[in-house]
Nucleic acid binder design. Structure first.
Length: 491
RNA sequence: GGCGCUAUGGUGCAACGGUUAGCACGCGGCCCUUUCAAGGCCGAAAUACGGGUUCGAUUCCCGUUAGCGCUACCA
């Protein structure tokens, strides 16, 4: 009868930092899933921690998502603007007895180091976490409660976790899960300052926003039973959970600055193509089921499935990312690449008034010639600079390597003359003319070819010479050779 | 400390009871060659360890070890 409801998923970052690669991968999976299933992707900013929250970082996160090509259908919503909702939910749980007020002093997390220090001391063996979990307010009598209220002690609201039984939920990646309730402490829902904790706000919002699938990092797996309990108490049907494994650094530690860039924006700045980054990210913790690796976005959407998500943490491998970038620089139709190269030329102020800007066909052909040797977008304006402007220099290493021979100045003069006299300007004509000069001088063609390459583009590392000549055009080539001769003499 | 999750070459993934354990990155070599890439070919390199179950375990079960996660009035 009624067609199955379209899935609704969300990406819910906290503005405590930039968009990092782990978050980007989570966002990508949500986006791929939504597109694949014809569902809806929401963006929700989880900014309930006033201490760490930095509103100015939100824009950077949105920018990162846009660069990645991840567009959301609803939002962004801000939890900081939905506070009454969480408060009301907490009050409802309180009224129904599923939660209770707690008058304990707030205890900040001690962290793993403190626990370790304690071990060596050998005094009492009570584990830190056990100490923290103890809260006697669970069993406070009505009179005691009233007393605390009269004293004006600030109160938090905690969830009353059942002392017995088990809590179960299904995870699309990790399978059916269950946890003994006695392992779950009475967690805080509403802080004494009236702001909700993550556990509360996330569940209230996911219910309110009718989220059907929660795709998020596996660091949330252990806390999911708490949320399953909350869904129950709030009378809502829990969504499908899908926890995706984490991305680690090369030392298997949580990815951090020590491992190189962790913010997505820096990869944009470095000259990676968003589609390459997407492809790379998609294969971290997911596989289409076979050996395919180069998967363009359209196909990624078609093939994505939660069933292909792995359960093991993956290490971020920069070398592989670079390989993906070369693939996307080289394989797609050149037209797909043009906008990115154009942006790069503009960034380097090489676009205005250039041949590239008013001769699309030439631009495409030139990019096509250069791209097999590129690894990052910046290559178009660094070593390939000579293709887009007459203002290029001669690379020292190239001069050292190919401008040594003292016969070169004379030979280059003859080459310039021969090229200038050519009635036709194409690959074969340039080839024949160049080889003829070399033969007449009794030297190997390579000597002249390599020296000429350095003269007309300034680099040793560049595309094959005669195709380069065709792209640059006769006038520029002849002029550049003649202009270079004095420098060659000095090399 | 407690609880949980995970375990295939250095890295990312395949093989979901029967394969000479496959692919890719990276690494080494060769070919091609007009520099440098790309490309082609070849090579080194893995089922963490110990017990079971089974005719047969990378695959299923248990234990050990290791890594990670959670254990906060962080998310």
């Amino acid at each position: 009868m009624t067609s199955p409801e379209k899935p609704r998923v969300r990406f819910a970052p906290s503005p405590t930092g930039y968009l990092h690669v782990g978050g980007a991968r989570t966002a990508l999976f949500n986006w791929l899933f939504a597109r694949r299933e014809g569902g809806t992707l929401l963006l929700r900013i989880e900014d309930t921690d006033v201490e760490r929250n930095r509103p100015e970082l939100v824009d950077g996160i949105l920018e990162g998502l846009k660069w990645l090509g991840i567009e959301w259908d609803e939002g962004p919503f801000f939890q900081s603007q939905r506070l009454p909702l969480y408060k009301a939910a907490a009050e409802r749980l309180l009224a129904g007895g599923a939660a209770f007020p707690c008058y304990c002093k707030a205890m900040a997390y001690a962290g793993g180091d403190a626990v370790e220090e304690q071990e060596g001391e050998g005094d009492d063996e009570v584990p830190k976490a056990a100490k923290i979990a103890a809260c006697s307010c669970h069993d406070l009598s009505e009179a005691e409660r009233a007393g605390r209220e009269r004293e004006g002690i600030p109160r938090a609201i905690r969830f009353r976790v059942p002392r017995t039984g088990v809590t179960r939920f299904d995870d699309a990646v990790f399978g059916p899960r269950e946890l003994q309730n006695e392992e779950i402490e009475d967690f805080v829902l509403l802080r004494s300052n009236g702001l909700p904790t993550y556990q509360l706000s996330v569940v209230v919002d996911d219910i309110d926003m009718r989220i059907t699938h929660i795709i998020r990092g596996a660091d949330h797996l252990s806390n999911t039973p708490k949320q399953a309990l909350l869904y129950q108490s709030l009378g809502a049907k829990p969504p499908v959970f899908a926890h995706v494994p984490l991305i680690l650094g090369s030392d298997r530690k949580r990815l951090s600055k020590r491992h190189g860039a962790t913010n997505v924006g820096s990869y944009a700045d470095e000259g990676f193509l968003p589609e390459a980054f997407r492809n790379f990210l998609a294969l971290l913790g997911w596989s289409p089921g076979d050996d395919t690796e180069y998967i363009r976005t359209g196909e990624l959407v078609e093939r994505f499935s939660l069933a292909g998500v792995s359960r093991t943490n993956a290490i971020f491998d920069r070398a592989k990312l670079e390989w993906f970038n070369t693939q996307y620089l080289q394989k797609p139709p050149v037209e797909d690449l043009l906008p990115y190269v154009e942006a790069e030329l503009k960034r380097a102020r090489l676009w205005e008034g250039s041949q590239a800007s008013h001769d699309r066909a030439w631009f495409a052909r030139t990019v096509d010639l250069i791209r097999p040797r590129t690894r990052l977008l910046g290559d178009f304006t660094t070593w390939a600079r000579g293709f887009f402007t007459d203002d290029y220099g001669y690379d020292d290493e190239a001069r050292e390597k190919f401008w040594k021979d003292e016969r070169l100045p004379a030979m280059l003069t003859k080459l310039a003359d021969a090229l200038e006299a050519l009635p036709e300007w194409n690959h074969d004509a340039c080839d024949a003319a160049s080889r003829a000069v070399a033969a007449a001088e009794g030297v190997k063609a390579g000597l002249l070819i390599n020296a000429t390459r350095v003269a007309i583009v300034g680099r040793a590392v560049a595309p094959p010479l005669f195709e380069t000549m065709v792209v640059l055009g006769k006038d520029r080539v002849v002029e550049r050779i003649r202009k270079a001769i004095p420098s060659v003499r000095g090399a």
